Amino acid sequence: MALRRALAAAATLAALTLLPAGAGAQDPADLPSPAGEPPPVPSGIDLLQKRSYWARSAAARPFVSALMDLGVIYFRPSLALGVGKPHWSWLGIEAYASGSPSGGAEYLGLRAALPSVEIRGGARYAFSTTQYFLEPRASYTRRDTELMQGPPSRYVAAELEVSGSIPLLGGSLFGVATGYAVLGTPEGFYLYEEALHAVMKPPYLYRARLGYMAEMDRFGELRLGAAAEVLGNPGRDSVVVRLGPVLAVSLTHHLDAVGTVMVVAATPDRLGLLGADLGQLGLRYRWATGDRWPEFP
């Protein structure tokens, strides 16, 4: 059963991925390599993938937990130290680090989680060996972002985020709102924000995503839907709109298949797929100390 769900999920996501990409007439050669990207920003479907198993597997306690994302050519682990019921309702510290020949990122922050609402705040340090700060322009192409006219891209992003979900019409409505303050940038330069895939003038950037996922089976183990998001940068007085399909499949109590494909619908720039959010395509495994019925996968 789990294998059939996984195959169905892969086929569905592959079909849906082609629709928005074709509609936008974007060149597949523009596809950015996820190997050099930091872990994807929360998609909003994370809350919907919470399983009541984690409320029953053990009592509230101090714990160490891990969330491991495995994609086609990336592996992105994150760790948390907290109190409560991991992956369900807890309070604690979380961190991740990622690296590749083209750069990397490190994050440290606090998270408070309830079953349907979460809030987090922290700081992310991003560095790149291939990306440079950008000379100010009214609009950018992908080629513009590859020019080496400024200092190498290195910055700290302070982040504050609230996410939530509510049941609605045989599925769930979900939303994510995030504010960013980018620090440590040279005066007079713009930057390509690595995690959000957008050109911005420091220091402020915000993101708001709203979506709906329908439950395709009686147990809610297969969910399919769509989402739209707005990225706003007051410094450039610009707005980017992205939209696309979202998919989530619960394979076991610990393992999920997730997919989020957000392509650009409106933007002042012409970045091709460099401006899309294709970062969350793969498997997600949850682990925690004190789990009463550990299993792999």
Score class of each variant (00 low, 15 high):
Val199Ala: 04
Glu187Ser: 11
Tyr206Leu: 12
Gly170Cys: 01
Val176Phe: 04
Glu194Leu: 09
Tyr190Thr: 09
Ala198Gly: 07
Tyr206Arg: 12
Asp217Glu: 10
Leu173Tyr: 03
Tyr192Ser: 06
Ile166Tyr: 00
Pro151Met: 04
Gly184Arg: 05
Asp217Asn: 12
Glu161Val: 04
Gly170Ala: 04
Lys201Thr: 13
Leu169His: 06
Ser172Thr: 07
Gly225Lys: 01
Leu210Trp: 04
Glu161Met: 02
Met200Leu: 15
Val162Asn: 05
Gly150Trp: 03
Leu173Cys: 10
Arg209Lys: 09
Arg154Thr: 11
Glu146Trp: 01
Glu215Arg: 12
Met213Leu: 15
His197Phe: 10
Arg218Ser: 14
Gly171Tyr: 02
Gly170Ile: 04
Ala158Asn: 09
Leu210Asp: 04
Val176Lys: 02
Gly164Gln: 05
Tyr206Gly: 15
Leu160Asn: 02
Leu210Gly: 14
Ile166Ser: 11
Val199Arg: 09
Tyr212Met: 13
Gly225Arg: 03
Tyr192Val: 08
Val156Phe: 00
Thr145Val: 03
Pro203Ala: 11
Leu196Gly: 11
Leu169Thr: 09
Ala158Thr: 07
Ala195Glu: 14
Thr145Ala: 06
Met200Thr: 13
Gly179Cys: 06
Leu160Asp: 14
Glu161Pro: 01
Gly171Arg: 02
Ala208Phe: 07
Tyr155Asn: 05
Ala157Tyr: 01
Gly175His: 00
Gln149Glu: 08
Gly179Ile: 04
Pro151Cys: 03
Gly225Pro: 03
Gly225Phe: 00
Ala157His: 01
Thr145Asp: 08
Ala214Cys: 08
Met200Glu: 13
Ile166Gln: 13
Pro186Cys: 06
Gly188Ile: 05
Leu173Gly: 05
Tyr180Lys: 08
Leu191Val: 07
Val156Ile: 05
Leu160Ser: 14
Ala226Asn: 05
Ser165Met: 09
Arg207Glu: 15
Leu210Thr: 09
Pro167Phe: 01
Arg209Phe: 00
Pro167Ala: 12
Glu221Thr: 13
Leu222Phe: 09
Pro186Ser: 07
Gly184Gln: 05
Glu161Trp: 03
Gly171Leu: 02
Thr145Pro: 01
Tyr180Val: 07
Ala158Gln: 09
Gly184Val: 04
Arg223Phe: 01
Arg207Tyr: 04
Glu193Arg: 01
Tyr206Val: 12
Thr185Ile: 04
Tyr212Leu: 11
Met200Asn: 07
Ser153Ala: 15
Phe189Met: 12
Thr185Asp: 07
Ala214Phe: 03
Gly171Ser: 05
Ala195Thr: 12
Thr145Trp: 01
